[in-house]
Design a protein around this nucleic acid. Structure first.
Length: 195
DNA sequence: CATGGGATTGACT
DNA sequence: GTCAATCCCATGC
């Protein structure tokens, strides 16, 4: 895979969030097609960068094309792509993938649910699920999405010009009205509630 | 130093 | 539908 260049991310975060739909994420022998994203920007209070530059937000304010990984609810690692120029706090949350490679390894990492093996569409259908399936951890915070260990490549042929649904972001309490969530229309891997 | 709040998930009523 | 798990870090004293 030829990873997306830094310049792809050095643009308005809403453009990047929309165009990441259909792109491919790779990590440790697993890969999936991005089918759901959300945009976050320092100008609105749901974004971690809203509070300004702190040890936690340093990466969001840094170079575009870098992974921002943080722990959510004490349990899950969530994966973001840092966007816009260095000095601007903006990132795209990767919320769901269509599994592409390494499905057995994903199933192993995700474990059983009620004594039952997970179906394909349950492996990466949420922001915490996909990091567990790919094996992405907090240590990858601040690493390059071009050089790895997490890498993102361009849309493959089948994903040229996907139909994209737009809606409000999930699980936030601040700025809930912004329609900054993007998803591949009708894709079974999109998290609930569907757009 | 103590406290409180999550960009979630899965189990349970 | 409700709810707890669990930890990082921002904030306030």
């Amino acid at each position: 895979m030829r990873p997306l260049p830094r310049s792809f991310y050095d643009r308005p975060v809403l453009d990047v969030a929309r165009e990441l739909i259909g792109c491919v994420v790779e990590h440790e022998h697993c890969a999936g097609v991005i089918v759901e994203t959300e945009a976050y920007h320092e100008s609105e209070p749901a974004c971690h960068a809203f509070v300004g530059l702190t040890p936690r937000t340093k990466v969001i304010f840094g170079e575009p094309g870098v992974a921002y990984v943080y722990r959510s609810y004490g349990i899950h690692a969530l994966l973001n792509a840092v966007c816009e120029s260095a000095g601007v706090g903006a990132a795209v949350l990767i919320r769901a993938l269509a599994p592409l490679e390494g499905l057995e390894l994903m199933r192993e990492r995700r474990g059983a649910l009620g004594g039952r093996e997970l179906r394909d569409a349950e492996l990466c259908s949420g922001p915490g699920k996909l990091t567990q399936a790919l094996g992405v951890e907090l240590g990858e915070n601040g690493t390059s999405l071009s050089r790895g260990p997490v890498r993102i490549g361009p849309r493959e042929r089948a994903w040229r010009d996907p139909s994209i649904a737009v809606g409000t972001r999930i699980g936030i309490t601040k700025a809930p009205e912004l329609q900054w969530r993007f998803a591949a229309a009708g894709d079974p891997n999109v998290s609930r509630p569907r757009i």
